[in-house]
């Protein structure tokens, strides 16, 4: 956790510096003394302060807890990365392609990744789940879902 805490602290300091830098560009408020930059500046400074405390604690060996190191050979880590990729693709294509096809493909793929092998299950469950979600949101609650390629049929 020591290294992680130091890295976390540095990221915190960078975010804090960014807030201060952006805050400096905001217009001052002459009437009320505290303008749009008051809060961001204060928060940026506080974040830098806490980040430094974290780093100092870490350097002095007072970090708490442990982190399991990431190993690419680990099955779980691989699954995590695959999920991240699949999730990103889902998010990017759900609007152009549409909710129904995207969700069916995503669910089938993810169930396969998580160890389901039965073809019948992989063929039926995702379609059923997608249909149920779509019916509840689109038909019962009348909230529109991205239609995508099916726009002319729904």
């Amino acid at each position: 956790m020591k290294v992680a805490d130091i890295v976390g602290g540095i990221i915190g300091i960078l975010i804090g510096l960014f807030a201060l830098w952006e805050g400096a560009k905001m217009p001052a408020d002459v009437v009320m003394k505290i303008g749009p930059s008051f809060f961001p500046n204060m928060l940026g400074a506080l974040l830098i302060l806490f980040s430094m405390v974290l780093i100092v604690n870490a350097v002095r060996g007072r970090s708490k807890g442990k982190v399991e190191p990431y190993r690419l050979s680990d099955k779980g880590v691989q699954r995590g990365l695959i999920t991240l990729a699949a999730g990103s693709v889902f998010v990017l294509v759900v609007e152009p392609i549409g909710f129904i096809p995207t969700a069916i493909v995503f669910l089938t793929f993810m169930m396969r990744v998580m160890g389901k092998r039965s073809p019948l299950l992989l063929a039926v469950t995702p379609a059923l789940i997608t249909a149920a979600v779509w019916l509840v949101f689109e038909k019962v609650l009348v909230l529109s879902m991205p239609a995508g390629v099916l726009a002319d049929y729904l």
């Binding site: 669910l107 169930m111 998580m114 789940i129 529109s144 991205p146």
Partner: peptide, 24 residues
Amino acid sequence: DRAILTPTIFVLSMVGAFAMRSNI
């Protein structure tokens, strides 16, 4: 089964986020 539930939670989360104001 977690293998079915977990991906479904993901899809449901995305749908719920979208439904609020139909914005990708």
